[in-house]
Design a binder for these strands. Sequence first.
DNA 1: CGCGACGTTGATTTGCCTCAACGATTGTGG
DNA 2: CCACAATCGTTGAGGCAAATCAACGTCGCG
Lengths: 193, 193
Amino acid sequence: MYDHINKNISRYVTFYPEELEIFDSLTAFEKVPKKTIMLHEGETCNFEAYVVKGCLRKYYIDANGFEVILQFAIEDSWIGDISFSIYETKPSKVFIETLEDCELLVFSPEKKEELYTKVPKTERVFRILMMRNLAVTQERLFNTISKTATEKYLEFIAQYPTIPQRVAQHYIASYLGISPEFVSKIRTRLAKG
Amino acid sequence: MYDHINKNISRYVTFYPEELEIFDSLTAFEKVPKKTIMLHEGETCNFEAYVVKGCLRKYYIDANGFEVILQFAIEDSWIGDISFSIYETKPSKVFIETLEDCELLVFSPEKKEELYTKVPKTERVFRILMMRNLAVTQERLFNTISKTATEKYLEFIAQYPTIPQRVAQHYIASYLGISPEFVSKIRTRLAKG
DNA sequence: CGCGACGTTGATTTGCCTCAACGATTGTGG
DNA sequence: CCACAATCGTTGAGGCAAATCAACGTCGCG
C-alpha cells in the first residue's frame, strides 16, 4: 500500500522507518471513480494527492470557455492546487478531474502542516518536488513559445508514451495548446511520412 | 545592506535575530556590471542570487538561435538556475545576464546546503518561494496558450509596469513569445485607440 | 562623426484556427 | 438488447492572427 509513496519521497531524503510511519499515518486512502471533478474553480483546494493508480487532469477554463490542461497525473506522481497551504486558502482557479478510476493517498492542509512539524525533513522533500515541477513547467513554457505544433506533438508522445493510450486525443490537444482538428491533421501527415 | 533580504524571507517564516545573522553571513555581496553574462548554457550554475539593485534576465536559446526570456529579475526578487543544488550539478540550459549594473547577494551551492543544515527553517522559505514561482509560471503558461498577443502585452505592462521603462522592447517581445515587429504594431494600434 | 542596435512601417506569406459535414464508437434509457 | 443520442476523430474549405522579409529613420556610443 505505502511502498510506492515511501519510495517516492525517499528518492530525495533518507527517512527512518518511524518517520515513514508518521508520514503514512497522516495520509488518507481514497478511491475515486472516473470522471469525478474533485476540485472546482472557485473552491479552496483541500487536498494534495499522490496517485497510486489511475489518471487525472488539472485544467483552467479560459475567457472563451475553452479548457487548457496544465497537468496529467498518473501512477507515482503528485497532483493538487499549487497554492495549497493552510495559510493561503485562496479560491482555486483550476479544476481537477479523474479520467480513470483512481486510488489516491491524500493530504489535507492540516495534516500536511502536522507533517512538517512532526517530520521537518519533509519540507525538503516538498521543496525538491516543487523545484522539479517548476523545471518541467519552464521547459514546457519554452516549448510552447518556440516550437511548432508538430514538434510539440512529437515531443509529447516521446516524453509521455503511455498517456496517448489512456486519454482522449482532444485532451492532448488541450495540453499542447493546439486545436483537436489540427492534432488529427498532424497525425495523418506523420502517418503518410 | 541585509534589511531587504531579511524582510523578504521573513514574509514566510519568523526568524530569530541569530538565525538571520547566520543567513546573512552565508551570502556574498557582489557588484556586477551591465551586460555581464553570469551563466552560460552548458555551465553548471554555481549561484543563486537575491537582487538588491539592478535588473537581470534569464533565457533559453531555441533550435533556430532565437532567445526566449524566461524571467526578468528586479529589486527584491530571486534569480538562479532551478536545478541549483550540490547534489544535482547538471549543465544548465539557460543563460543569465545582467541588463543593468547590479548589486546582488549570492549563495553558492555549498553555503546554501550549510544554511539548510544550520537553519532548517530556510527549507520552508525556499519551498514557499518555489511554490510561488511555480504558480506564476503556470499562470504564464496558461496566458501564453490562451490569450492573443495584444492581451498578453497589456497584461504584461499592467503586471510589471516598471519593466518596459528599464529594458529594450524586443526583450519584452521575447518574454511574451511575440515578434518584435508585432509588439511595435500592437503599440501603434493601441495608441490610435 | 559613423557605426551598430533598436524601433517602426508596409507587403507578403503561413501556420494554425474556425466552421461544417461526415463516419465511427460509446453509452444510455426504454 | 436495440435505438438513438452524444462524444469523438477525421477531412476539407476558407479565413485570420501573427511571422517573415525588407526598407528606413533614429538614437546612443565608441
